[in-house]
Amino acid sequence: MSLPVDTGYAATAEDRASLDAWFAAYDAHSAACRIEEMADMAAFPLNLVSDDSQGNGRSAQWDRRQFVDTMKHVMGDAGEDVSFRSTRTPVFLSAAMAVVFTDCTMTVAGEARRMHYADVLIRKDGTWAFQTMIQGGWGDSL
């Protein structure tokens, strides 16, 4: 019997700091509804995994235009008061791949909404980009 290649990876402090900085920038763009800047932080085609109102799992791939158009529709105008409070648990698969689980409270115009989601991020040339978004409830839009 041969053992598989050792794929265990212990993230460094720099790995975590760079991922935290990436999410801080992304959250700032999201809070200000800067959709184009959010799109700049993705690796397209973007994979999406969700479920629909019938309880079925769904998946799709979006190009940049689909992401921008959908986020403009979902997020609306930048005039609303939007804030995020998130707790993130990253699992680094390597120095260039991470799955990040997020528990988030998004507050829009004083109304709080809790969300749970996961993202798969890849790092290329030292820069993180999200490549897969996983969150329930988006399936009817895919």
Rank of each mutant, 00 (worst) to 15 (best):
D27K: 13
H29N: 14
W138I: 03
T105M: 03
V91Q: 13
Q135H: 04
A96S: 06
A24Y: 09
T12K: 14
S18I: 02
S18C: 04
A96V: 00
A118H: 01
D77H: 14
A25T: 15
E111G: 12
D52N: 13
M106V: 15
H116T: 15
M71I: 09
A32N: 07
D52L: 06
T132E: 08
F23I: 11
G57W: 01
T105W: 03
N47H: 11
G137F: 07
C33T: 15
Y9Q: 02
M106C: 09
F101R: 14
A60M: 06
W22P: 02
T107E: 05
S141V: 00
G110A: 07
V5F: 03
L93H: 07
Q131F: 03
A43E: 13
T132C: 04
M133F: 09
R114S: 15
W138D: 02
T105P: 01
L3I: 12
D81S: 14
Y9N: 06
A78R: 12
H29E: 11
G79P: 09
V100T: 00
R58C: 04
H116G: 15
H116L: 14
T105L: 08
A96D: 09
W128E: 00
A21N: 10
G57R: 10
R65C: 08
G76E: 08
V108Q: 04
Y117F: 13
M75P: 03
F130Q: 00
M38G: 08
R58Y: 05
F84V: 10
A112C: 10
G126H: 05
G8N: 13
V91A: 13
A10W: 09
V99F: 01
M38W: 03
A96G: 02
V108E: 05
M75E: 11
M133W: 05
E36R: 02
A21F: 07
D119N: 07
A129N: 07
L19S: 04
I35R: 01
R58G: 02
E111Y: 05
A129W: 01
M115S: 09
A28Y: 06
P4L: 13
F23H: 12
A11P: 11
L48S: 02
Q66T: 14
L142H: 08
T102K: 09
W22F: 15
L19G: 02
D125A: 00
D69G: 04
Q135R: 10
K72V: 14
W22L: 09
A42G: 03
T12L: 10
M1Q: 13
V49M: 09
L46D: 04
A31T: 13
T132Y: 01
S18G: 08
M115E: 04
T7V: 14
R114N: 15
N56M: 08
S18Y: 03
A32W: 01
T12N: 13
G136H: 06
A24E: 14
G139S: 00
Q66K: 14
T132G: 00
T132K: 03
G139Y: 06
V82W: 11
R16Q: 12
D140N: 03
L142D: 06
A10Y: 06
A109G: 12
M1N: 10
R123I: 03
V68S: 02
G136Y: 01
A39C: 07
F44A: 04
D20S: 12
R123P: 06
D119P: 03
Y26K: 07
Y26W: 04
